[in-house]
């Protein structure tokens, strides 16, 4: 009966959109697909508002929904790929919307090479600002598992990006150069 979102809640949902999008884009690697995921997440959240416990972390709840949608959709799409007419591959190449240009090409490509469980753990803890405990709740696994996934993700990224090789260079040498110049 009274399931319409209250103005405060609507604002809270709207405020969560940028971080949901950032997570969805980083997880899926595609802006258009990420926006569909965010939209489905909002709709799912609105129809399940009675299951949200007031006073608990709204963002963590929304991230849990988005993450579960991403994984169930991923499984569905894997079945679709069996379809050999090439239309799926064609759709994969859809360009991001105008104005949604994505930077950090190298980093993004390295991120996309991680197994998805490591990628999501790193994104939740290293970028979205969740604690290991919150990330474990969102992914439905043990805290130790999250810690291990984050650790492995960092090691893999470091080797993909050759971070080890530039230990003595990077920002510090740039700062020095700037100070000298």
């Amino acid at each position: 009966m009274t399931s319409e979102p209250e103005p405060e809640l609507r604002e809270a949902l709207l405020a969560a959109v940028p971080s949901l999008r950032a997570f969805a884009i980083s997880l899926s690697g595609q802006v258009d697909r990420a926006d569909d995921l965010v939209q489905d997440t909002l709709l799912r959240a609105l129809s399940n508002l009675h299951r949200f416990e007031p006073g608990t972390n709204l963002n963590a709840w929304l991230f849990t929904i988005l993450r579960n949608l991403f994984h169930s959709e991923y499984r569905k799409r894997r079945r679709e790929i069996e379809d050999p007419d090439g239309s799926y591959a064609g759709r994969l190449k859809v360009q991001p919307e105008q104005g949604a240009h994505l930077d950090f090409e190298d980093f993004r490509s390295a991120l996309s090479q991680l197994p998805s469980d490591q990628r999501e753990a790193l994104l939740l803890v290293g970028a979205s600002g969740f604690s290991y405990e919150e990330a474990a709740n969102i992914c439905g696994c043990a805290v130790g598992t999250i810690k291990s996934r984050v650790n492995r993700a960092r090691i893999r990224l470091a080797s993909l990006l050759n971070v080890d090789d530039i230990d003595d260079l990077g920002p510090d040498s740039m700062t020095r150069a700037a100070l000298q110049g």
Binding site: A22, I25, D103, F104, F107, G126
Partner: peptide, 12 residues
């Protein structure tokens, strides 16, 4: 790694 990740994320 952490700095690059956050920079990419902040842009999004």
């Amino acid at each position: 790694i952490g700095d690059q990740l956050r920079a990419m994320y902040d842009e999004l």
